[in-house]
């Protein structure tokens, strides 16, 4: 299993800013291939879901959205949705999706980037524990991707704790080398 890391922020620091800062420093090293997943998933409202899914890869790597169609279909197989449900999901505007579906779309959007790491907030990690479509998609396609969780709480089991002042380059090296977690150790 690849690394799972936990960054515990002091209570006065916002998780949102923690995620943003971590993303900004990691993007520099990962060439845009880091994805953020948060409990409150935000999609771009004037784009349909399939355009939202393709947006980061389309913007950064000019990969055509059509090229993702089969890839998205393949990933959605993990969810056991019929074709009508898949069509309705990808063709909708984000406002028409439930919060749970928006989180699925957010994770799919990240996975289409073939990310070197996922950065999550504690709320997302908590919701992942509830099972459902998000957990199914994560277990099938993302559990081997290094995961960094930003939280105010103590590290969950199986996570290696990151020091708050850790240099971004050092963090990136750890992710690349797949440093084992506390649990694996």
């Amino acid at each position: 299993m690849n690394g799972r890391y936990w960054l515990q922020l002091p209570p006065q620091e916002s998780i949102e800013h923690g995620v943003a800062a971590l993303m900004a420093s990691l993007q520099e090293f990962a060439g845009g291939r880091v994805a953020a997943v948060e409990g409150h998933a935000v999609l771009i409202s004037n784009l349909r879901v399939w355009e939202n899914l393709a947006l980061p890869a389309w913007y950064h790597f000019s990969e055509s959205p059509d090229a993702f169609e089969s890839h998205v279909g393949g990933m959605l197989e993990a969810l056991d949705w019929d074709e009508a449900r898949q069509q309705q999901f990808t063709g909708s505007l984000p406002q028409a999706l439930s919060a749970a579906d928006r989180r699925v779309a957010q994770l799919l959007r990240g996975l289409l980037l073939q990310p070197a790491a996922l950065v999550a907030d504690a709320e997302w990690w908590r919701l992942l524990g509830h099972g459902g479509d998000l957990a199914a998609l994560y277990m099938r396609h993302a559990q081997n991707i290094p995961l960094l969780v930003v939280s105010h709480g103590a590290p969950a089991e199986g996570f290696a704790e990151l020091e708050t002042g850790l240099d971004a380059a050092e963090l990136w090296n750890r992710i690349k080398q797949g440093v084992v977690t506390n649990a694996d150790a």
Binding site: E16, V19, A20, M23, A24, Q27, G32, A35, A36, H40, V42, L43, I44, S45, N46, L55, P56, Y59, H60
Partner: peptide
């Protein structure tokens, strides 16, 4: 109104997180 709404709903932040 589109930009003000996008900003209000955190879409600017979402774009920044995607390095856009």
């Amino acid at each position: 109104s589109e930009l003000a709404n996008m900003r209000m709903h955190g879409e600017f932040r979402a774009l920044r997180l995607m390095n856009i």
